[in-house]
Design a protein around this nucleic acid. Sequence first.
DNA 1: TCTACGATCTTT
DNA 2: AAGATCGTAGAT
Length: 201
Amino acid sequence: MPGRLLPRQFYARDALDVARDLLGQEIWHGDVGLRITEVEAYRYPDDTANHCRVGLTARNAPMWGPPGRAYVYLCYGLHQMLNLVTNRNGEGAAVLIRSCEPIAGHDTIALRRGGKQGPALLTGPGKVGQALGLDTSFSGHVLYRRGGLEVRRGSSVADVAVGSRIGIGYAEPEHQHAEWRLAVAGSPWVSRSRQLRSAER
DNA sequence: TCTACGATCTTT
DNA sequence: AAGATCGTAGAT
């Protein structure tokens, strides 16, 4: 049985709260289903790592819009990065999906990864976007309606690990060190480039 | 227009 | 340690 879609209201909160509750939920696109294992919150208004720090632009426009939509952008000319827009209309915030456990569509995923066999370790946002077959045309897509890219209710997560976000050396030290990266404690589907510590629940 | 660079990943 | 690869943002 497919899980119910997460309602728009789920996303209409501070990005850090949404990030915590996104762990264990599912992202579906066609026959591919993923369980979210690692996320990063890009908060509003005080976050100099956030793409919205420069104000409204053509690229980040979905982040400034209503919650419950996708924000997809191209990183390093190669990687399609999936974010889920949070907060309220007019507040530029989102949660970056960093890592996922594949739960369906393994053949499609293998095909998109260039025919690589074996269990796909979807650790890192570029791999998540690739497994889902995303590109920037998905930016702005509504996630709480059936059709195309969907986010469904999955399993609950009891133990959460936290750490600082990755790849934001341009941000203020205060925001570089903020522990706004969250992961399912003990999951193998988590970036291990930098240390996480267990958080109390 | 021109330039520098990035919320990354793979290969050397 | 470095290359891939290109759209974006800010400068000119």
